[in-house]
Design a protein around this nucleic acid. Structure first.
Lengths: 203, 203, 203, 203
DNA sequence: CCATAAGCGAGACGGTACGTCCAGTCTTAAG
DNA sequence: CTTAAGACTGGACGTACCGTCTCGCTTATGG
């Protein structure tokens, strides 16, 4: 009972070429024309693929985009929770990696998906599970480890809020664009977190 | 004869009823069906107004929505920069008022506009000027006043980042919905800001 | 109660230009490419008209075609039942006029509609009422008048069958194309009818 | 080496089961849903056969249907030109047999094919050769024999037109459905032919 | 007794027409 | 000159069928 592919695999197998072309086209369209230019028709035409082929495998454009992001994430797969012993160093590295990745997407895709997710609980849940949740949990675990080691303290500010501070700033700048999301920001936020969570109580 | 309103005002005057119906319909549609349900046709029909009447006064749906938000903001018009002498008290009040207002809109409208603004620099600019900028500047000025008074310090963390912390957290929760945006949050963030910017250096 | 147009006639009035372009395009397409080339999309494009405009006024391509035929019939409106006193002369004239008209349409449109009507009772009924029935009744009345005058007799062959003979031959040749449908045929059929219905019994 | 089927006949032989299932499905679909419901995809699915199997043996749906009709005709194969000595009796029998056969098909298949043939000369030719021509020639030969025997005369009405009368009436009723195509009609038409072609000149 | 080869089912592929909906423009009559 | 109404062109939507292709399996012949 080691094999799960007991499916007879009848008929012509799915074209990996088409699958990749579609995902690539989705990202490309989203970056060039924004989320609203992301049209099932445009995806199919850009990918040089029949329209039905897109609909066969993805019910809606959100699914294509989410899949494309997942693929991209898998290729860039850094492991999220290293432990060098120095919590702040790890935090800075995690934030820097995250910022670099989102910058790759110009944010357009993510913000578009977020807007769609406002009235689509199912999409909202999938975004949480795929994009938001993992990094959030990684940072939280990192900070908790710091607290356990005595490097940090959560007495004045709950860790939840500290995590919100880090990623909230990222999102805020992604959508508002009043300032860049880069490695420098990762350093600044790390300093902010350190100040916010420093163990030596001011009393 | 330099006056501009010397126009004889010929013909039928603009209907205030229609204007209000349109703005109200825009908000209502956005909250019930999300930003993508916000359609010029739907606005006109919900408002019981001719389609051309909407197009005559607003070039696109973003303009309707932005106008509606402006109207809403005007009615709620608290002045953004009180000065009670206690900086942290003022900060908490500003954040609480802001959170209450955004909560009213479920965020859907704002996030939808933000998504649209990703590829529409003009809209992006107007959002900055109308929604984002003023509150951002108000909070910044407040914190700067605290620094001037010696209540706060910007030595470890720049004020810009502190402002990002406050509003970033708000936006992050609005779009991700992993936690509420309420008065309690205003308190927590104020505490966080106080910790981050406290003057007594740990040295 | 003399006026039937109590409708307030609000909104932009229907475009007569578009209506004519659509009907003309339908006939043209049907003659050039046959009934199966008659596509709602092709009609709209040939007519230089939005697709929705076609669908707004005609539910299906049959309706467009039927309307086009009706229009054509109205323009060619010979009155179907003249009475010169000479029954056979009138019959020949009626048949000749009918044959000339159907020849104009190459028959393609009619046969296509007929094929469609095989599984569409409603269309079948409308074809009867519009195209088939009137001419059938006209010929029948003509022959009945001849019988009443003693020019003809329906003792050996019922008039119904005589009418079938005339128009059946036309349809048979239209679909099978083994022989032309022209004025000469009108003469031959008239002779055939005269022989079939001649009053002097051979007894 | 005169034989042409010296082919080694390698590989799996054609499935007779599949062939019959396809032809049966074609007739069934045509009768239940009309000619337009006759779809290559539907044929394959109804027959429980792969789509490619249909395309391998028949280029288009017309070919399937024509083949099915040919098969049906072969099974019902009455010989078309009996000679009992009584021409009118033979005529009546031929017409009755023909009418019974077409009634079996509800006419839908035939009319559909005819409509298709309007713009497909090759199909038109095959229909002539398969369906129309043989019976037409059989009736013509029968009538010519009657003329030769002096039972009938073609002086007033050419035999061609007489044949058109018989089969034209059939087609007319098949497509227009204003009256049935049955044995009674065979009798009436025979009477009509007898009257039209009677040898005793009225002079 | 298995290599070769063709038929078979299934079903994915690139296309195209379908009929619906919305965008944005226009043209009416009514106020 | 604005209003409500609604017809206009144009284009994306998601579905269905087209005819082709590519699988694994089956069924025959022949070395």
């Amino acid at each position: 009972m080691d094999s799960t592919d007991d499916s007879p695999v009848r008929g012509r197998p799915r074209s990996e070429t088409a699958r990749r072309a579609v995902l690539h086209a989705a990202l490309q369209l989203c970056q060039s024309g924004g989320y609203q230019a992301l049209t099932m028709k445009a995806i199919a035409e850009t990918a040089g693929v029949g329209r039905q082929t897109v609909y066969r495998w993805w019910p809606a454009k959100q699914d294509v985009l989410l899949d494309a992001l997942r693929d991209l994430g898998l290729r860039k797969a850094e492991h999220l929770d290293p432990d060098t012993g120095d919590t702040l160093f790890d935090v800075r590295a995690l934030l820097a990696a995250t910022f670099q990745l989102t910058d790759l997407l110009t944010g357009k895709a993510l913000v578009g998906l977020m807007a769609e997710a406002q009235h689509d609980p199912e999409l909202s849940h999938r975004l949480q599970a795929t994009v938001i949740g993992p990094r959030r949990e990684a940072l939280r675990a990192m900070l908790a480890r710091g607290v356990a080691r005595g490097e940090l303290s959560d007495r004045t500010v709950p860790l939840e809020l500290a995590v919100d501070f880090a990623f909230g700033t990222m999102w805020y700048r992604l959508i508002s664009k009043h300032a860049p999301v880069d490695t420098a920001l990762a350093g600044q936020i790390t300093t902010g977190l350190a100040t916010m969570l420093r163990p030596e109580s001011p009393v």
